[in-house]
Amino acid sequence: MYLDFLSKFGVGGAHPGGLDLTQEILKNEKISESSRILDVGCGTGQTAAYLADRYGASIIGMDINPIMIDKAKKRIKQCQLPVEIIQGSIENCPLPDGQFDLILSESVLAFADKPRSLHEIFRLLKQGGRFVANELTINQQLNSTYTEEIQQFYGLDSVFTEKDWLSLLEKTGFTDIKTSIQKPSMLENNPSPEFQFSEHIEPHLYMIPDQHLYMMTKYRNILDYRVFSCTKE
């Protein structure tokens, strides 16, 4: 239901830190007009639009959700930006090998099959290409009851510690892996998002923001996020 809420409410910048953090992260990457970038799980297209407008790079935004795709295309059309928006899953991406200089995921892989997704990201990158991810992380292992509550509410198949993420990135073949721990916490570092409301929203989805806040408060020192950056050599 959480992902249904995001799509029906058209939440832009739902990831921790929002667009402000995205802009800070991207300052550390070598992006130019010749860069080819894939925004995995692009949602309403907020980051993809920023990349095209700020850097003039060649951008593809991809999302599995058709509602998000429609809203992303609407944004790109309104902004008159040369961004390609496609529907697809990063677990089985329809794009050919080795064509991207940078791939970005913002609170996406936590909701997907992580090994398969990272394998596809590695395949899609050029030699020397960069992968940057802002992803949900737990600060300690939890008992099965707490783990199940988190996974059930957010629709996750697993929750990873920072060590789990680093191990999987290394196993996939990435090098020069760096982690950035952002402060303040996920609960506090959540700027007001933007919304693109669908015409019809199921009544139960209006309860999700309060339930999300409850989860953030209950697991205040446990649910967190990390920014990972790495290279395909």
Rank of each mutant, 00 (worst) to 15 (best):
A49I: 00
I37N: 03
F100L: 09
G43E: 05
S105P: 01
E199M: 03
M186F: 13
K74L: 12
I85D: 09
E199V: 01
I121Y: 07
M62K: 07
K163G: 07
I37D: 09
S229N: 13
E170L: 11
L6F: 03
M1C: 04
H15Q: 04
Y225V: 02
I31Y: 05
G10I: 04
S229R: 14
T175S: 14
M207R: 15
S34A: 12
A57I: 02
G155A: 07
K232I: 00
C230Q: 07
I37S: 06
G128M: 02
F160S: 12
T145M: 11
T147C: 11
S58D: 13
A133K: 00
T137D: 05
P193Q: 12
K171Q: 15
I150D: 10
L21Q: 11
G129H: 06
D176K: 12
L51M: 06
R75Q: 12
M207H: 15
V83E: 13
T179P: 00
T147P: 00
I85P: 03
T217E: 12
V132P: 01
I103Q: 08
P184A: 14
H119P: 00
E194K: 15
Q99T: 09
K77Q: 14
K77P: 00
C230K: 00
M62H: 11
A48E: 10
L118R: 08
N134S: 11
Q87S: 09
G43C: 08
E194R: 10
S89P: 01
K74Q: 11
M186K: 13
Y2E: 07
D4W: 01
V159H: 10
M216N: 14
V40I: 13
